[in-house]
C-alpha cells in the first residue's frame, strides 16, 4: 500500500468508528425520547458484546493448526491468575507473556 492508500484506509476506519459513536445522538436528538425497548437494549447489550469480542479475538485461532490450544491454555492461565490475585492489569500482562512464551517456544 502507498502512504495515500494507508491514509485513506485509516480515514475509512475513523469514519466507521465515528458513525457508531454519533449515530444514536443523531437519531435521538435532545428532547426526543428513545423507545423503551431501545433504552433497555442499551443496558443489556454491553454485557453480551464482551462475549462477542472474546470470540472475535479468538476467531482465527479456532481454524489454526493447533485449533486454539495455546489460546485456550492462556485463557485458562488468565482465569486462574485472576481468581488468585484479582488484579486486572496483572492478569492481562501475565496472560500475554504466558501466551508469548507458548507460541515462541512450544507452538511454532
Amino acid at each position: 500500500m502507498t502512504t495515500i492508500q494507508m491514509l485513506i484506509t485509516i480515514f475509512a476506519v475513523v469514519a466507521g468508528t465515528m458513525l457508531t459513536r454519533f449515530l444514536p445522538f443523531l437519531v435521538f436528538p435532545e428532547g426526543k425520547t428513545p423507545p423503551k425497548y431501545v433504552s433497555w437494549l442499551g443496558t443489556v447489550l454491553p454485557h453480551a458484546v464482551i462475549g462477542l469480542l472474546v470470540v472475535y479475538c479468538l476467531k482465527d485461532a479456532v481454524f489454526s493448526p493447533y485449533h486454539g490450544l495455546p489460546e485456550a491454555a492462556a485463557a485458562g492461565f488468565i482465569f486462574l491468575l485472576h481468581k488468585w490475585k484479582r488484579n486486572t492489569l496483572l492478569s492481562i500482562a501475565g496472560g500475554t507473556v504466558f501466551y508469548m512464551v507458548l507460541v515462541q517456544n512450544f507452538f511454532k
Partner: peptide, 29 residues
C-alpha cells in the same frame, strides 16, 4: 494496512467491531 487496499472493507469492519458504541450511545443519550 498490511493487506490489499480496501477502504470499504475497513469502513464496514469498523462499523461491526465498534457496533457496541451504538449501545453506549443509547445508554448515554
Amino acid at each position: 494496512l498490511l493487506s490489499a487496499f480496501d477502504p470499504v472493507r475497513g469502513f464496514f469492519l469498523a462499523l461491526m467491531v465498534n457496533a457496541r458504541h451504538l449501545f453506549y450511545g443509547i445508554s448515554m443519550l
